[in-house]
Each structure stands twice: as structure tokens, then as C-alpha cells.
Amino acid sequence: MLHHPASPPPHVISYGGSMTRLAWATGAGFADSDADLPLLTEAAARAGLTSEVVVWDDPAVEWDAYDLVVVRSCWDYVPRREEFLTWAASVPRLANPADVIAWNTDKTYLRELETAGIAIVTTAWSVTGPDDLPPAREWVVKPTISAGSADTARWTDPARALEHGRQLLAAGRPTMTQPYVDAVDSEGETGILLFGGRYSHAFRKGALLTTDDDPRELPELKEDILAREPSAEQVAFAERTVAAAGSLLGTDLLYARVDVVTDADGSLRLMELELTEPSFFLQHTDVGADRAIAAILPRLP
């Protein structure tokens, strides 16, 4: 198990030597709860790099002073997405880039991946009536712009699923409705991390949603996570997914997290492709932090 240093104080925290090379962008108040940050910082130092934890909407930060800004725990972006995208576009050297973030922070990107041949969990978009619900015993309803399962719920009653979706739509928030994948309750989701397009490590995420419970209001930060050795099929699926996204976006990706589930017929399906601010869960691997830095090094001047 890797050692965790004490959580840094807020605002800007410098580690290592005198010359800043990297910035880890976070949201105000989230540095302490982002377990990846100290491990990334330690790995950067081992590679001879200096890095800082910086709040993305701090007006005092000079972003062009950094060789690379890496988006991390900017988990407060959802209600301020346009402001966040404007900030991303203003950063000269950002990973993942601003156009990737704009595409990935609206889950309608799943439609493009499906068209590109990636199997996704069956999804109905902005459902308003019972005829539009996908066949299922349970449904998950969520806004297309959300993070950490906020405003997401699992329903057995189609009327409640429809009402949840209508409330979101009335608030100007497009929705997605999916059949609940039963395997999430038994085997969980498999999250597969790729850095620089190469497989790094994986983890198991247990079920988060309770049946017929009110939608959670805030992003879920406490998750049931264990290390997992993925199958060759899962890794290949993740690699195909990231390659498809890279082709659609016309860029290579510094990091990607591919969340995969097993459907009732045994096939793999994409739950989400997280290219913006996903947790890497580096505390569950001895190699992930160093592999992340190894992917960063070729991007530095």
C-alpha cells in the first residue's frame, strides 16, 4: 500500500523544487477528499517534477506559467458548466484538452460512441411518456450533465421514473433513462484506467443506487471500491472505446476511465467514458501513479 502524506492546506500548495512544472486542477474544498492528489504529487517528485494543487476558478492563478495543467477533482463544475468550459478554453496547456472536456461533460457523447460501434447500456433520451421507457423491471434516471451520481435515482415504479425525468426536464436539464443492470448488484462495475492510451489498472465499484430512493443531491464521494484484475476482454473493450473517442475528437487522451458493466446476456457494455475529472483510485494500485506521470512526461517541453 502506498503512503499517504498529510492533506495539503487549501489554495496553492507547492511540492518539490523551486520551478513549477505541473498543476493539478481541483475544485475549492475538494483537495482534501481527492486521494489521488498526494500520490500523483509523490510520483511527479520521483520523476524530478515539481507540481502544485491549484483551484480552477481562483482568479489569481496565472495558468500560462505551467507547462501542463491536468484536470483532476473539479467536482463543482456541474452547476457552472459554461463557466468551467470557458476556463478550460483559456488554459494554454490543458489535459485533457478543452474540446474533450466540452464533449465529455454532456453524456450525450454516448450516442456518438454507440454510432461508432461501442456497445453502451441501452439508453432512452429525455423520456416524457411510458411508451418511451426501455423495457425493464427497474430504471435509472439521470441528467445528461451530472457528476458522482448527483440527481440520479433507481426506480421500480415506471410512474416515479417518469416523474423524476419530468422534473429534471422542467428544470431545463435533458435526461437519460436506462434499464438497471442487475450485474451491478453482484459483480459491480469495472473501472479501467488508461494513461496515454495504455492500460494502467482497474478497480471494482459496488452498487451506489438504492431502489426507489430519492435522487441524491450531491456528488457521491464515498464509494465501495476494491482493486480488480480485469479480463483481457474488458481491457480490449476499454482500449477500443478510448480509440473510438480519440478518433471522434481528433486528439490523443492523457487519461481515460472506462466504466464497464456486464449485461444480462454476458456482453460488455459501456456505462461511462470519463475523460474530465474521474477518480483514478490510485490508492488501490502500486503502479497507477507512476504510469500517469510516465504518460505526462512526453507532453512536457
Rank of each mutant, 00 (worst) to 15 (best):
L133W: 00
A147R: 14
V121D: 01
C74Y: 04
E163S: 09
E62M: 10
N96I: 06
T175Q: 10
A171L: 13
N104D: 13
Y77V: 08
P143G: 07
R80A: 15
A147P: 04
V78Q: 15
A161S: 07
I145H: 09
G172A: 12
W87D: 06
M176G: 04
D67H: 10
A60W: 08
S126D: 12
D64M: 05
L168G: 06
T156E: 01
P59W: 12
Y109A: 10
V69P: 03
R72L: 03
D99G: 15
P158D: 06
D106V: 15
P158F: 03
E52S: 11
F84G: 07
R72F: 02
A60I: 07
A161I: 03
V121G: 01
M176T: 02
D182V: 08
P143K: 11
T175G: 10
A98Y: 05
R154F: 00
W63F: 11
T122A: 13
P135G: 01
D157N: 13
R160V: 01
A95H: 02
Q178W: 03
L85I: 10
W139G: 00
A136S: 04
R80G: 08
S51P: 05
L113K: 04
V61K: 07
L110S: 01
R111L: 04
V141P: 01
S146K: 05
D57S: 14
A183K: 05
T144V: 15
N104H: 13
H164S: 05
P92M: 10
G148N: 09
R137V: 00
A89C: 08
Q178H: 05
R72W: 02
L94T: 07
V53N: 08
A136R: 00
T86N: 08
A124G: 03
D99L: 15
F84R: 11
P143I: 07
T123S: 12
P134K: 01
D67A: 11
K107S: 09
R137E: 13
V70M: 13
N104R: 11
T177I: 12
Q178I: 02
V184C: 11
L85D: 07
Q178M: 05
R166S: 09
A159F: 01
A89L: 07
G148I: 09
P130L: 09
D131T: 13
V78H: 15
V53H: 10
Y77R: 13
E114S: 12
R173K: 11
L85H: 14
W63G: 09
A124W: 02
A95I: 03
F84P: 07
A102N: 08
P79M: 12
S149F: 09
E52N: 14
K107C: 11
P143E: 06
Y66H: 12
D157E: 13
R93C: 10
A161N: 04
P134C: 00
Y180M: 04
D157S: 12
D182P: 15
A95M: 04
L113D: 05
W75D: 07
D58P: 08
T122D: 11
A170G: 12
V53G: 06
R93D: 13
V121Q: 01
V70G: 01
E83C: 10
N104Y: 11
V69E: 04
I120R: 02
K107D: 10
I118Y: 03
M176S: 09
T86F: 02
V55I: 14
V70F: 04
W87K: 06
L94Y: 05
S90F: 08
Y180S: 03
A119F: 02
W103A: 14
A170K: 14
